[in-house]
């Protein structure tokens, strides 16, 4: 092999390495941009496989909302995800953060309960920090007769996903929050 051949081969190897590295960087960008979509899909997969029926799906790319109804009942779950760090620089500095608002809904037996929930919702929306993590709010839906208790959380998707692969099911943590909301709502409706 001549020196010219060696140089050409080295140049080709360098070109291959540049293309491979470019795709790796492009992929890092894609993974930051799409992590909220991956989380949403994993949430749908977990709940549907567990027997919940998807009844609502809305998404504009960064804000997502899904609503499920119990397969053998009327209870409902609502999960809203909002991507906070789609930019890879922010994702690297803060983690792949999403604002997750989860809500548990039960069908009210009487009109008074829904009316009271709507009143509570109006009152709580006047408080400035009602959207901060851990603040439980209650609201009612006259059309369907449901009362929802919801809580906002901020989750780091790096805790649940390695790239696009599931590390730990996000639905487990969402379900923990929903379980507490269900307990809270039952206590409130009983009193």
């Amino acid at each position: 092999m001549t020196t010219t051949d060696n140089a050409a081969e080295a140049s080709e190897a360098r070109f291959t390495a540049l293309v491979a590295a470019s795709w790796k960087r492009h992929n890092a960008w894609e993974q930051s941009r799409r992590s909220d979509d991956v989380a949403l899909g994993a949430t749908i997969t977990s709940y549907v496989t567990a027997g919940w029926r998807l009844v609502d799906l809305e998404s504009n790319g960064t804000n997502h909302l899904v609503r499920f109804q119990a397969g053998q009942g009327t209870d409902r779950l609502l999960v809203q995800l909002q991507a906070l760090c789609e930019d890879p620089v922010r994702a690297k500095a803060l983690g792949r953060l999403v604002r997750a608002e989860v809500a548990y809904g039960v069908r009210a037996e009487n009109f008074g309960a829904v009316k009271q929930a709507v009143k509570d919702e109006l009152k709580s929306s006047m408080v400035a920090n009602s959207s901060e993590p851990g603040v439980i709010t209650v609201d009612g839906d006259f059309t369907t007769g449901y009362i929802y208790a919801s809580v906002p959380l901020i989750l780091d998707l790096d805790d649940y996903f390695d790239g696009f692969a599931v590390k730990a099911p996000i639905a487990n943590d969402l379900h923990t929050a929903l379980h507490s909301l269900h307990k809270y709502l039952m206590g409130r409706l009983a009193s």
């Binding site: 894609e30 799409r34 979509d37 991956v38 949403l40 899909g41 994993a42 749908i44 997969t45 496989t49 799906l57 809305e58 998404s59 504009n60 790319g61 997502h64 696009f164 692969a165 599931v166």
Partner: peptide
């Protein structure tokens, strides 16, 4: 999802 295919984009 059960097949290992994650969602990467939603458009409704």
């Amino acid at each position: 999802g059960r097949q290992g295919f994650p969602t990467i984009e939603f458009s409704t």
